[in-house]
Write a protein that binds this DNA or RNA. Structure first.
Lengths: 216, 216
DNA sequence: ACGCTAAGTCAGCAATTGTTTACATAGCGG
DNA sequence: CCGCTATGTAAACAATTGCTGACTTAGCGT
């Protein structure tokens, strides 16, 4: 099963870290990169360990050596997810900067790592532990957004958290439409084209508005 | 592989159409119902034909007899999708009614057929033809929404179509968070709780606004 | 120079997958 | 009442899956 054949030069030829013949850490990285790509694009069950090993240019057995199992490799991919929003000290993030970051990440058409990681967040292996990791990652991601909007951990009112999650669902849905489903015209819309409506949506959700109805 | 075991009474015991022992159409329906549930919940590759047959209480070989292949059954499920929005004569749909319909469908916590069908729209079999059906379905769904907002087929300006697709991505992302990922607090938020923010988002996207910036 | 350990290879196993083939039988037309 | 066809059953097929064990070999420390 080879739904999306990956040519040799499609694999990120990281010139700075040439995979020497006997480098455990380097091999682990190659496997993680190939696995993330496969899992994100084709999903967990549709991806075979042989696919990943071939993409990484590495022997299949090493997946089990380094990650115990296919499931372990998937969990490692999930744990490796770091989104642009979480990288700077999120405490100083303003709503407008968060919104701009989300838009850039969603609109990233290069098939780069960030939209790939967003896509990975939507994949499930069916395993409970992996699903929990995924849930935690998304949740912490939503908390970062909500925090920028003024939410504080432990707030009795989680309206802002809810709104942040709705904003996230929009972002993830957009990534799905653009990279996986290829729905036109949204799939090939430029960043400039998306900035308008997406900005409106995210501002509506996250920007403080005096006239917002108090939770009934 | 049995990620989500389905008990006997979990299967929709349609009393009006008892599956008699030798009824081809009835058997087809049983298979379609079971397949849609499995495909929507677990995805295509994670679902086995034996899972479906067991859920439907039907012999495995009948899947190939009636639908040629697992892929054919999946396509039949996709073709069967009819969303609430498309059912009435969409020409008379107002934006507000469309918005209300979307919210109801997204918030449907009963795990009923409609959220199940939305979930199915996010699943891929990897097969090109099935993906095309899925794409067409989503696209026509977006056109219905855009039409209510004033868009007309053939419009040179597809800004409203784009906005309808963004609205759809929000809706699908929400269904994913609620039924598949079970992300709190959005997963168990009531319809009343969701109506506020979701209504704001959808209105922002679809309601005519004089001050909307002309496409630059 | 050399051996020891980590790193990588190879072949194959057991289980599961979708599908097919040959067979059984219910139930209606005559 | 009989037999023919549509319907359903059972068993097995080849292919693929994740994974394992025994084996090789590169490369560093001494």
């Amino acid at each position: 099963m080879e739904p999306t054949p990956v040519t040799a030069d499609d694999r990120p030829a990281d010139a700075t870290r040439i995979a020497r013949s006997r480098d455990a850490d380097g091999t682990r990285q190659l496997l993680l990169d190939a696995a993330r790509r496969r899992f994100a694009r084709d999903g967990y069950t549709a991806t075979t360990v042989r696919d990943i090993a071939t993409d990484a240019g590495v022997n299949v057995a090493l997946i089990n050596r380094y990650f115990s199992s296919k499931e372990g490799l998937f969990e490692a991919c999930l744990r490796r997810i770091t989104l642009t929003i979480d990288r700077p000290n999120a405490a100083e993030m303003t709503v407008d900067r968060i919104i701009e970051t989300i838009i850039d990440q969603v609109a990233d058409q290069t098939g780069g790592d960030y939209s790939l990681q967003l896509l990975l967040l939507l994949r499930s292996s069916g395993d409970g532990r992996a699903d929990q990791i995924r849930r935690d990652t998304i949740h912490s991601f939503a908390e970062s957004i909500a925090t920028a909007a003024g939410w504080r951990p432990g707030d009795a009112d989680d309206d802002l958290l809810l709104r942040a999650q709705i904003a996230l669902s929009t972002a993830l849905g957009m990534v799905l439409f653009r990279s996986s489903i290829a729905l036109e015209p949204v799939a090939s819309a430029s960043v400039e084209r998306l900035r308008g409506p997406l900005g409106e949506v995210l501002s509506t959700l996250l920007s403080p508005q005096a006239e917002r109805a108090p939770l009934g």
